[in-house]
Amino acid sequence: MTCQEFQGLVGAFALGALDPAEHAAAEEHLLEREHQGCPEALGRARNTAAALAGALAPVAPAESVWRAIAARTGVDAGERVRRGVAPPRRARRALTWAVAAAAAIALVGLWVRERSARMRSETELASAQRGAQAEARDRAALLAELRTLREGAVRERELVALIDAPDSRLVPLAPVGGHSGRATAVVNVRAGRAVVLSATLAPEPGKDYQLWVIHGTGAPEPAGFLRFAHGAVAVGDIDPRLLATPPGAVAVSLEPAGGRPTPTEVVLLGKLAG
């Protein structure tokens, strides 16, 4: 089977609609080393086939199903993240709001406790005016925290949507040059969005992890930086101007703070082409 022949039946293959002999021939073709776009065509066809499930209303399995899975895998069966099974976008939205709401409740609770404590000791305060000023400062600080949390929730939602879009490609970035660590580039050329995420790179004092996009045999183009925020996950946006044409590779290098126009120490590399 040639690559052209495979790509002519890749849709039926992804649907599971090939007869056994053709299915076996297609699987055998996929084992060949050299391809002209077959894995990519298969990925797109599989995403399309899986998207068809969206025509059906999600159906929640009985609670006993999760308990049986938990028992067989040794996972804590406790409460699921969300009881009952919501469809993906609803689950994500509910969880994102839950995160924001939980954080807001915690902050408001903290503020109420601090305020109560302050009121109890009010007689010890030098003046009611000083208390009011302190409260105003607290309130401003809390509002700033909440604003940051809200922005974070929006950011999380954007990233989840990008990761789960059927036409997003998830490209593993592997270590090079004896370095360690891993990352994943999530690239959606159609949407002009790409991010790099890493749970294993550690911040280096005085240095930045710089992102690079490589087109064909061209020189690496600086594409942004990985940023470490809360938690262990570093995230960096790739400059959307570099996605006008599909990139061939994405790389991460370790550079002096502020970055460099050309990479000096590439630590991770992932290829999209092929």
């Binding site: 994500r92 839950a98 974070g152 929730a153 999380e156 990233l159 930086f225 809360h230 996950v233 995230v235």
Partner: peptide, 20 residues
């Protein structure tokens, strides 16, 4: 350069899912 805030919550779950 855009500062990202990635903490606990949904994204962490999805990310741990991807990593795991």
């Amino acid at each position: 350069m855009r500062e990202s805030m990635v903490s606990a919550g949904m994204f962490a779950l999805v990310w741990s899912l991807l990593v795991a």
